[in-house]
């Protein structure tokens, strides 16, 4: 599992961890039943306070994404429902929308650009 933490962004570290786990679950890279690294391992790897990882895991558990089982590693439980992916994308796009407004670009033009970029990525991925 690949998780990267950037402490300088102002987004709480536990939130960064949560978002990345959610993303990976929503994208299917993590399937239900997959085990997540232990708090200890992840905290050492990321160089962050283990309590933070623990906090992220317990929030994820509350949201029903992971499951904590005594004596065993934390595992993915569900994919957080169908809307999870949409929700993540929504958050990502919020900033973009503001910039589109600020630049004064027409919605249609922006959508066109977005569409063309999406199709380009699609082509690159399926040669």
């Amino acid at each position: 599992m690949l998780i990267v933490v950037d402490p300088g962004t102002g987004v709480p570290v536990y939130r960064q961890v949560m978002d990345q786990v959610k993303l990976q679950v929503a994208s299917g890279r993590l399937a239900p039943g997959d085990e997540l690294p232990s708090t200890r391992l992840l905290s050492t790897e990321l160089g962050v306070n283990p309590m933070t990882i623990s906090k992220a895991y317990s929030f994820l558990e509350k949201e029903g994404i992971v499951e904590r089982r005594p004596g065993r590693p934390v595992a993915v439980k569900g994919n957080g429902g169908k809307g999870a992916g949409r929700e993540l994308l929504r958050n990502e796009l919020a900033g973009t929308v503001t910039i589109v407004r600020q630049l004064g670009i027409e919605p249609d033009e922006a959508l066109e650009l977005f569409r063309s970029m999406l199709s380009k990525i699609g082509k690159e991925e399926t040669p």
Binding site: V5, P7, G8, S43, V48, N49, P50
Partner: peptide
Amino acid sequence: IQLLNDAGTTILFSSHHMTDVERMA
């Protein structure tokens, strides 16, 4: 962090490296 993991050590630290603080505190 290793100490925190091993023994749950309490830490009071002052620092001007804010990214370190964000990681640790």
